[in-house]
């Protein structure tokens, strides 16, 4: 990657740098306590943990872009379905009222709680959507050996947004609300409720398949192959 861009008299320095880079790439630092470890081969499905604080260092997932893509696409479809149909419906003495997922955001803004409405919109809809779309933005081109621009930015966005994506909490919130209302009203679960529940299962599954670190591995593997190719040409 570096070597062919430099001139011949810089060649020696570049060699040194390559050695350093190789050594550094064989190391991993614990993200929780900063302890350095040497990377070793681990079995598929296994997980390497920090010897000092027991944090997860890296895992060896079956690096299958196909499986990750399948789950990612299914999740996106479920996201659309979950937002297209009614979420819950309530009937009290003949009067009924139904809501979709986004209605919760409207309910907050209607009472003038603008800040909270905007924040909830991000937590429930926008951030999860960005995360899902970003994943596909990275994985689809990788699958077809292409690269779209700003992949690094998208990757960092996904890492940064992970703690702020709260779909599963919203689902549990809906269940608590159901229990609160069950005694005094008749409640029906809409299609969207089931789609949303499925979406949450798919999200958990996709996180099992590709955590942030293995996602980066996909990207860097593709990059290494690309470098090999460009090296052959020049």
């Amino acid at each position: 990657m570096v070597a062919d861009r430099h001139t011949a008299n810089e060649g020696h320095r570049v060699e040194d740098r390559r050695i350093v880079e190789t050594v550094l790439s064989s190391l991993v630092a614990c993200h929780e306590c900063d302890l350095l470890h040497e990377k070793i081969e681990i079995d598929i499905g296994a997980e390497a943990r920090c010897i000092r604080c027991n944090a997860s260092l890296y895992t060896n997932k079956q690096n299958s872009i196909d499986r990750a893509l399948a789950v990612g696409l299914a999740a996106l479809i479920m996201f659309v379905v979950a937002n297209a149909f009614p979420f819950l419906q309530i009937t009290v003495s003949g009067n009924s009222q139904s809501m979709s997922i986004i209605s919760a955001v409207y309910a907050l803004s209607n009472e003038g709680l603008w800040l909270l409405a905007i924040v909830c919109f991000g937590f429930i809809l926008l951030f999860p959507l960005i995360r899902m779309a970003g994943l596909l933005y990275i994985l689809v081109p990788l699958r077809f050996h292409m690269r779209l621009p700003c992949i690094e930015l998208v990757f960092r966005g996904i890492v940064f947004l992970s703690p702020w994506s709260m779909m599963e909490i919203y689902l549990f919130g809906a269940i608590v609300a159901l229990v609160k209302l069950a005694a005094m009203a008749n409640i029906e679960l809409g299609y969207s409720f089931w789609a949303f529940a499925l979406l949450n299962i798919l999200t958990v599954a996709s996180l099992q398949m590709i955590d942030n670190h293995s996602l980066w591995e996909f990207i860097s593997e593709a990059r290494d192959q690309e470098d090999l190719h460009s090296g052959d040409v020049s």
């Binding site: 009222q97 919760a104 909270l116 909830c120 703690p163 909490i169 549990f172």
Partner: peptide, 20 residues
């Protein structure tokens, strides 16, 4: 982050229980 559940419960109840 699970504490956010309270806010969501309120938002869902407010969206659902609007029966004139």
């Amino acid at each position: 982050r699970w504490s956010m559940i309270d806010v969501f419960v309120v938002a869902i109840l407010a969206a659902l229980v609007q029966i004139g």
